[in-house]
Amino acid sequence: MNDIKVHVKDLDLHYGVNPALKKVNIMIPEKMVTAFIGPSGCGKSTFLRTLNRMNDLIENVKIDGEVRIDDIDIYGKEIDVVNLRKKVGMIFQKSNPFAKSIYENIAFGPKINGITHKDTLDEIVEKSLRQAAIWDEVKGRLYNSALSLSGGQQQRICIARTLAVNPEIILMDEPASALDPISTAKIEELIHELKQDYTIIIVTHNMQQAARTSDYTAFFYLGELVEFNKTETIFSNPSKRQTEDYISGRFG
């Protein structure tokens, strides 16, 4: 097992008075793909969003416990959330490119980081698009609106946009749930490529996808982390009854 990148200790999350996550403990390895699976409403997306403090945006959310990234508690008092989010990028369920050109979408992150030099920006844009395996498809129309692309292409633009900020961890919230099988395959292939450089955490409701793409899998149920292990183990020999039921399709 690689080094631990994210270490979560006794994480509780409440929406108002309703608990959404209960005493979650997990250690996520670096430069590997970790999948979160579970029935909808089990807290897997909520948990993902605690890792870059996206839940801060929602009023009335209360979080207790520790989330350590590189041994820094990201819920500590002195944490810079803006930089945290640069370090921990996020891909959303619905592709959400800005209503700007492809180029401007990718350059958004570097620009807010103060990069104004045109050549540097060009370089970053190309590199990010290449990394997201979409350069060849869009290199001729970088200044067209990103919204003119297909859903799968848009999602890869969003991935490229995140890569351009140079994160260390990429969170993916059901990134392929709205895509056709071919686009999904491309995204999965891309995930496989990216794990050489990035720690990837992916939420999915598609168990085959989890099995195909991830090294480790966590099963969530009713706000609790039921089981976390190597993906092969989870799928071939789960230790908990609930995991087995879910994987064999008995519920969810």
Partner: peptide, 14 residues
């Protein structure tokens, strides 16, 4: 859409 704000914030925009 909220998506757009989240996209921007997730990229580390203030």
């Amino acid at each position: 859409p909220r998506d757009m704000r989240e996209a921007s914030l997730a990229l580390g925009a203030t």
